[in-house]
Simulated scan of single mutants.
Amino acid sequence: MGVSVAPRGKILFATLDAPERGNPLNRATIEGLHAALDQAEADPALRLLAIAGDARVFCSGMDFSEASQTEATDAAAIRAPMERLYALFDRFSSSEVVVVALVEGPATAGGLGLVAASDVAIATPAASFQLSEILFGLLPATIAPFLVRRMGVQDPYRMALTAERMDAATALARRLVDEVVEDPQDALRRLMIRVNRAAKPDVAATKAYFRSLWIIDEATRARAVEAISARVADPSAMQGIRRFLDQGGMPWQKP
């Protein structure tokens, strides 16, 4: 299914429900998160959307199994999920619902996009974070605008070039996450008390104003989608991805 949705009071929980596969960002997951946001926006009682995985994994990013089945010559099929993923991140920053990422396990590649695009990111000490795209000949193109908005330029730049893995304490120090707590549910409860003081239209107006101060616009979307689509279509990148899927070795480890 990709995403399980359950309301609890004024919070709608959207839980990525394929941990045995790494909770990948595939078409079903992306559309499931769009639908969850639709539901939260449509219900006046829901004020907060909480996106979660579990302690095994938050989100491993692009579903390589799905991507590897797309022909490099099929530009529309390559672009479509990239467009929808960017649109999801973009919706987070304009929705009248407050979007929260609850990170209890590894967040990798596109999983960092969910974290960076969220309004609030809460992690447990077991969380970890990595931009791994460069290892597969890819780019964090749809993620970077939201990472830079949250963290500034240098930290995402270094993360993209080196694929370093950060623990939760480092992520907090670098402002990738807003809190590191043992009990994320208690942190959500405290956040809900604050969010409940503001009307939904006022949340949307505040987000709209801050969006106007930043570079996330139509030109940014077009550059991001074009850049990542070109890398996915590159035969050498796809060869490395298929070798990773078939043999388990990393792309730089030649057969």
Rank of each mutant, 00 (worst) to 15 (best):
Q247V: 06
R84C: 02
A76E: 14
L191S: 01
A76T: 10
F64R: 10
M151Y: 02
T170G: 03
R165K: 12
I30V: 14
Q39E: 14
V180P: 02
L37I: 07
A163Q: 01
R47K: 11
M62K: 05
G248Y: 09
V148R: 15
A116K: 09
P145Y: 03
R27I: 04
T142G: 11
L85Y: 11
A116Y: 04
T108V: 12
A35K: 11
D167Y: 02
A230F: 02
R84W: 06
A67W: 12
M250P: 00
P24I: 10
A45E: 09
D246Q: 14
P145D: 04
D43F: 03
P7I: 06
T15S: 15
L131E: 14
D17G: 09
L176T: 09
T220F: 05
V103Q: 05
Q185P: 00
D17F: 08
A75S: 07
A173P: 00
R174D: 03
A40R: 05
L172P: 00
E133Q: 15
I228W: 07
L161V: 04
A75E: 08
L131P: 09
G105P: 01
V100R: 01
D234N: 15
L172N: 02
A168I: 04
I30R: 04
A116V: 00
A237C: 13
A6V: 07
V103G: 00
T206A: 11
T162L: 11
I241M: 14
M166N: 00
E164Q: 13
E164T: 10
V120R: 08
I51E: 05
S236E: 15
L172E: 05
G61N: 11
A117V: 00
M192L: 12
V99S: 08
A117M: 00
D54N: 15
A55Y: 11
P201H: 10
L16Y: 11
E133K: 10
A101M: 01
L49S: 01
Q247T: 14
I134V: 15
V181L: 06
I134R: 13
G53T: 12
D119F: 07
P184Y: 02
R211V: 08
T142A: 12
G32V: 00
S60Y: 06
A101R: 01
T220S: 15
T70C: 08
K207V: 01
E83P: 02
A199Q: 15
G9A: 10
W214R: 13
